[in-house]
Structures are given as structure tokens and as C-alpha cells.
Design a protein around this nucleic acid. Structure first.
Lengths: 245, 245
DNA sequence: ATCAACATGATTGTATACAATATTGACGAC
DNA sequence: GTCGTCAATATTGTATACAATCATGTTGAT
């Protein structure tokens, strides 16, 4: 749910500028993005322009604009004359992205420990409450809220740039989980988020940072990146089905 | 100059995917981006679709796609029904971005110290040589190469994600310099880049990191962010010209 | 003269039409 | 029957046409 006004205040949306545009291409952008991040559209899914345009009752023009944006964010792959697919991060990319995420979010923690006020804590606790409420349905909402907790943390630092990068990297981690994790349960345990809030309140940088890193490690474990479940390359797969077996 | 082949191998371009697309919208994207980063198009400049389309002899469609991408990178501001402008980072944003840049590039240094090989050094030295050659003309090329040195460093870490973020943040720093620095001379001194290479070769993390941070600090000083030269808000300016003076 | 309402032109947002490229199935040579 | 070639179809890339919104200058009432 948004706030009581129509627009999502400072909420973790994905807009590039602050102006609350709601053109058709923006609507398509937001809906596609949400569908991908909620894992309704899995990595590799073909995103045919006509199909999407027909579904949303808009022209391909608006769809294309949305796809270009999503491609710029790295959650959609766009090959020339071949159309768009939901991005499929490789295992290597996945590890790379998680490593960078740890670095970014550690920085978030360090900054928040320095100047987190009670209003911030309140917002975080409210968010966690939402997460708990959504926990029952085991559905897309739960997945999305888990990611948005981390985005909210980044936004509370007051650094637009940092928040921007965290938003992008969290999105890509969602994709990674969608691709590799066996059960697509919420990628973050709610109680781990509670722990993070507590650690921040304690103003103990080292501890808070450690808890965040443990949390991210746990998330990464859920992705089971050690197990190679990736079978993207047809020919590699078919190696095992040799001609005259 | 690129490499001996047509395409820029791993060169610091800005493509979102790896495929060497050269559609019209991509051409417009690259040229606009270059023009902005070389400070030919200064912050605040209106980017009217028709004007650009006419100039490049393409349709507005291609121009719009380019503008959407540039907006996603934070180089262009896009207000609904009002068109596009070259982004104008505020002073606050500028400091924020530089702070994040220091963090990211410190990470680059730490990673490179660990596993930089001689081939990497060679590429870096080649790049610096280009910088020196371009130094004489004091022009756009020099500005661009200075930024690309940092991008090259990030790429040599082998981390696509890190390189991506560095590329984006270096771009935005170019914008900041374009907006605030008095003389738009190359923002990085070439000899400082040489020092960085030397420090990396010494395998001394602490020193290398220190030199990089000093370098970035020097760049930030050239931006003169302490001096507020920004007069964006008309009404604020006109406060000083009261009605009945 | 001042200001508001309106009309005109300019610019952006969207849809449609066309061109270029890729995909797929059919046909024919061997 | 297998393979290559080509035609038919589908999908993407681009241009143009139209609709919606904004900027601006004019008119007219006060």
C-alpha cells in the first residue's frame, strides 16, 4: 500500500527523476518492473513488444520506452533486432553483484549508525510490520517488501546516489534469487531485519555492520550460488546427449 | 582512437549490454553522451527533440529512446511534458556523489592491488600515453580521456557491476565539474594517474588507496565545491531585487 | 495601465504505418 | 531421408501522423 496520498512520497519506487510522471510508458515500466522483481516474470522470459502492448492496451511505443529503461537498469536484456528478455545473470555475475552489494550496504550501515533518528526507526519498524503482515501469503508482495527494506535503509542515509545504487543492486539480486534459488520464498527473513534495526539503535558500528553482512550472507546462501543450476547454453546441455549414445 | 578493429573491444563506452548495437538511437545516445561529457553541452541546456532529430537526420523516435537512456543514467533530466535538459547536479548532490565515488574507487584500488598483472599495467600506461598526447589541445578529448582512465581501472578489476557503477559516477562527476569548475581544463592531472599506476605496482594497498583518495580530493578541489556558484532558483535571485527598492 | 481569460503556436506523448531484420516452414537437390 | 535454399511470417527498428499539453502573445474588461 502507498501512503494516504496518491503518490508514493519517498517510497522505494524506481523513478529516475523526482517528478511523479505517470505517462503510459511509465505505467508499463513500473508494472513490468514489479512483475519481474516479484518473480512473476522469470529470468529469460521473452518480452515481446506486441504482446505487452496488447495486454496493457497501449502502443508499442510506450512499451519500447519502458524496455529501454529496464535495460538501462540491467534487469532486461536487449539484443539488437531480437527483442527483450528478462535478464539472466550468470553465476559469475551473481557472485560479483553480491560482493558489491555487501560493500554498499555496509556503507549504508556505517552512515546510519552515525545519524539515525527516532523518526527513521519508526519508518523502519513500520516497514517490518508490513513485511510481517505480508508474510502469510508467501507471495509476490512479501518478496518485494523484503527488497524494499534494504532500499529504505539506503534512502534513510539521505544520500541519493547511494540509494540509487542500492536500489539497482537489490533489484538485480532479486533477479539472481529468481534465477538460482530453489524455493522463491521471501529472500530476507523478517526477524533478521528486526535485528538490523536493533543493531542500528545500539549505535555500535562494528556489530551493526557484522549483522548486516551476516544477513546478506544468509540471503546469498538462500540463492544457493554454490550449486550450479544454470543451464543456459543449449549446446552445453546437449553435450550430454551425444549423437550416437 | 579505438583499437585496430572497428569496435572498441572492452573500451570504456557506455553500452548497457555487450552486443555492439549501432542502431540510430544508439548513435544518438553515444553522440549526445559524448557531447555532454566533453562539456560541449553544458548542464541546463535544453535538449529539444526536434532540434536533435533534425541535426542528426533521424526521427524523434530515435532521439527519444536516447534521451530515456541518458535519463536513466542520470545525465539528463526529463520532466513530464516539458522535455529534456542536461542534468544540473546541485551542490549537495555534487558532494554526495563525490563521497560515493571515493568509496567506489577505493574499492577498485584494493581489488587491483591484489591482482593486477603486467598486461593490465601495459593498458593503463598506454592510456596515460594517450592522455599525454591529448594534453596539448586542452580540448574535449582530454576531458574525456581523464574520466576514462578511472573507468579503465574499474574495468580491470573484472567486476562488471563495479565498473558499471564507476562509469556512471564518473559521468556524473564530469557533469559536476562542467557545472561548477571555473576552468574546464582536464579534471585529472596526468601525472597523478601515473602515480596511481606506480602505487598499484608497488602492491601497497594502504599507499595506493591513499594516493587515489588524494587524487580524487584534488579533482574535487578543482570543482571548487566550496564556492557556491549555483544560482538556479530565479525567485531566490530576485529576492535581491525587491519591488520597491 | 493591470490583469485575467483566451487563442495561437510550439513541443511533447502516443499511436499507427512502413522498412528492415530475424524466424520458421516448405520445397527441392542429392 | 538429409541438407541447403528460399519463401512466408513474425518481430523489431524507424518514420510519420495525430493528440495532448505547455508556452506565449493578444485581447478585452476593469
Amino acid at each position: 500500500m502507498q501512503d494516504m496520498f496518491g503518490r508514493s512520497s519517498i517510497g522505494p519506487s524506481g523513478e529516475a527523476t523526482l517528478s511523479e510522471k505517470s505517462s503510459r510508458s511509465d505505467i508499463v515500466y513500473r508494472l513490468l518492473r514489479q512483475a519481474i522483481l516479484e518473480q512473476a516474470l522469470r529470468p529469460g522470459t521473452k518480452l515481446a513488444e506486441d504482446t505487452i502492448a496488447d495486454h496493457f492496451k497501449v502502443s508499442r511505443t510506450s512499451v519500447r520506452a519502458a524496455l529501454v529503461r529496464l535495460n538501462a537498469e540491467g534487469i532486461v536484456d536487449l539484443r539488437a533486432n531480437k527483442g527483450a528478455c528478462v535478464a539472466e545473470p550468470t553465476l559469475e555475475e551473481a557472485r560479483d553483484i553480491f560482493a558489491l552489494r555487501r560493500m554498499l550496504e555496509a556503507e549504508v550501515i556505517r552512515r546510519l549508525v552515525a545519524d539515525l533518528d527516532s523518526a527513521d526507526v519508526k519508518r523502519l519498524e513500520q516497514h517490518v510490520k508490513q513485511e510481517e503482515a505480508a508474510l502469510s501469503d508467501h507471495g509476490p508482495l512479501s518478496i518485494r517488501l523484503a527488497g524494499e527494506f534494504h532500499i529504505l535503509l539506503a534512502e534513510l542515509t539521505g544520500s541519493q546516489a547511494l540509494a540509487r545504487f542500492v536500489r539497482e543492486i537489490v533489484s538485480r539480486c532479486s533477479l539472481i534469487l529468481a534465477r538460482f534459488a530453489r524455493l522463491h520464498s521471501p529472500e530476507c527473513a523478517v526477524d533478521e531485519h528486526v535485528q538490523i534495526i536493533r543493531a542500528l539503535q545500539s549505535r555500535d558500528t562494528a556489530t551493526a555492520e557484522r549483522i548486516m553482512l551476516e544477513h546478506l550472507h544468509a540471503v546469498e546462501l538462500r540463492a544457493e550460488l554454490d550449486i550450479d543450476k544454470t543451464e543456459p547454453d543449449i549446446s552445453a546441455v546437449l553435450q550430454r546427449y551425444a549423437r550416437k549414445g
